[in-house]
Design a protein around this nucleic acid. Structure first.
Lengths: 213, 213
DNA sequence: CGTTAGATTGAGGGGATTCAAAATTGGTGG
DNA sequence: CCACCAATTTTGAATCCCCTCAATCTAACG
């Protein structure tokens, strides 16, 4: 994307912040701007009136969220998992700009394609994997992500409580805890301070979690 | 989209056909053109080497498939569920055209957004619903689709074997069969000829299946 | 009428859930 | 620095739901 376009794009975005646990948007609310995260982690989720909740997507720095609408209203809930900072983009002005800049439209499509690919993988995980496989897959996924972004090799900071991991993996908190225990007993991972885990055997972790690419 | 653009678009597409059960593309294969279905139903799926398989998306007339790639290779399997006819579009030429026609880019984005919305809903189904809820949800979804497209009100032609429904809902064939039996006993649906079901009580079907909009 | 593919039904076992208790962690103020 | 409390995690026991494996039933077809 050329410089002028990039400057215009940045000009569109107002910086916004949320505290850990705060709602960024709620399903059913009229849609406002959408967001591109510059700091922190957020989750996109969906809830039933009986309390059941499913986390649909994890979003970190560089990812966008809040763009899915059903006739002008948010289709999902968005929540700050940690403290979050994000750029807010006005939809209409963004659309106008992207009509003039094909590169931008391409970037949006690539983002959506990546989200689709990821959720296709999660459908496999939720539909076919059992608990230990799901948890291993989750750790392997984080391991692959952190692989790029520093920290001592093999060390993962979860930033999610067991109950949130459970909501992501379609399990109960206790089941997640038991699965972690099993992986620990098998020396695949180690747990330090309950929200930091160390990958002892990446090979086996990917194997148990059927994690490819 | 204007007429000239539409004509160009159609000129891009070669018509292709598949017999019921045939593979349209396979995960790992180099990507070719993508497809827009003009007749029949197809499924997008993903398999593990141990034989477990998850159907990720159902695609009917008007839907596109085969556009998701991971560095030039198909990320999923595509299969004709019934006999299928589709328009095949060359990616590169399509991209060139869509760069000149913002409307086309918008249409693609809307298609992807709809697929994302749908798979978000399926994540909820697979992660949180129990068997009868899943099956009811599935029927309610079909009911809503067929609602538009004729046939006597309440009558659904499945076109899927129990084992395929099972692969879609993350269950076993036998469990699907039992769930159907339960819905039948409760007079929510009735079964005729094993691949045609009649919705007796749409209200309760949507209720059991937590189906909204 | 026999054959075959698909659907249903039954019995038994296993994995995840539920509910409850115990252990650990984290935060706060003394 | 430690005591104390709240929040979270872990563990245990009982239950439930789904899966597995097998047998039976049904429908379509030669």
């Amino acid at each position: 994307m050329d410089e002028a376009g990039l400057r215009q794009l940045l000009a569109l975005g107002g910086q916004r912040r949320w505290k850990k646990g705060e709602a960024m948007f709620r399903a059913g609310d009229p849609v406002g701007p959408f967001f591109k995260i510059t700091k922190g982690v957020a989750v996109v989720s969906r809830s039933l009136d009986d309390g059941r909740r499913q986390i649909v997507l994890l979003r970190a720095r560089g990812d966008c969220l809040g763009y899915l609408d059903k006739s002008g209203r948010h289709a999902f809930d968005g929540e700050a998992l940690t403290d979050v900072e994000a750029c807010a983009f006005d939809r209409r002005r963004f659309d106008v700009l992207s009509a003039r800049h094909p590169d931008l439209a391409t970037a949006v499509m690539e983002m959506m394609a990546s989200a689709l690919w990821q959720s296709g993988r999660m459908l496999m995980v939720l539909g076919q994997f059992q608990s230990t496989e799901r948890v291993a897959h989750f750790f392997a996924e984080l391991h692959a992500l952190y692989g790029n972004a520093g920290v001592p090799p093999g060390s993962l900071c979860l930033q999610m409580k067991r109950s949130q991991i459970a909501e992501y993996l379609g399990l109960r908190m206790e089941t997640v805890s038991r699965a972690i225990g099993k992986l620990r007993k098998n020396k695949v991972i180690d747990v330090v301070e309950s929200d930091e885990i160390v990958v002892l055997d990446p090979e086996r972790l990917r194997e148990v979690g059927k994690f490819a690419d």
